[in-house]
Amino acid sequence: MSRTKLQKNKRIWGQQPIYFAQVRPAAIHFGTFFSMIANYKAILVKNSHFRPLKTIHLLNFFVIAVAILDSACGAPDDTIVRNVAVASPGTTELYPETIFLPPGIGTYATGKILADGTAETIPCMTCHATIPTAKTQTNPMDPKQFHQDISLVHGNLECLSCHDRENRNALRLASGSLLEFRETVQLCAQCHGLQYRDYTHGAHGGMNGYWDRSTGERTKNGCIVCHSPHNPKIQPVVPVLVPNDRFLDHPMGETTTDSTYNGH
């Protein structure tokens, strides 16, 4: 379905000459008043900068002829220099795409606030270097002293599915090779291939900045910005900006911020 749509779109989104080649035989063929209207409409839609003459509606062929001439000469509006310069996409030089991750990733927040107002964080190995790791710590629900805030609800994973047993400053891929915390997207991608595929094509995860990377850079959210790695299911949120149209039924308790607005 999408394929046929795309082919159709390709043709329609194509350049003007193709379009006029389509219109002209149709006009000659029917030559009726209503085909004239249809053509005229199509011209307005396709060639939106084409400025129709006031008397042009009288003759079918005149319409087509003027349109062709007009497009051949270049539409008048294109020559007008406006306030903002027109950028054109497709230049080879592309601005970078960075992945946004929460600050402090791969460190432990002690809970202290430093003099500059930021939270104190320490590398994981600060503690784990001296704490012996049980050979099989499979129960994630049983952290003895630290990490009480973590409840692992992520399939049937264990702590060591992602964390490295020896080097707690790093993550561990299924292949056994270590991975920096900042490269967590690669780790998630091991299992969530479809999401990763969408993500790499800009169809999952959200972004900020420029759609046109020849003009500016872009920041994409890393997986853990939205999904907690220990409990990745999106938690319910309270929706914002409830419609406040006049006479539209509002849910109980919803108040209008302006009494005059509903006051007629």
């Binding site: 149209d245 006049r246 006479f247 539209l248 607005y261 007629h264």
Partner: peptide
């Protein structure tokens, strides 16, 4: 036209 009871709907 807020003085009317017409809406966007």
């Amino acid at each position: 036209m807020i003085t009317t009871n017409m809406t966007d709907q």
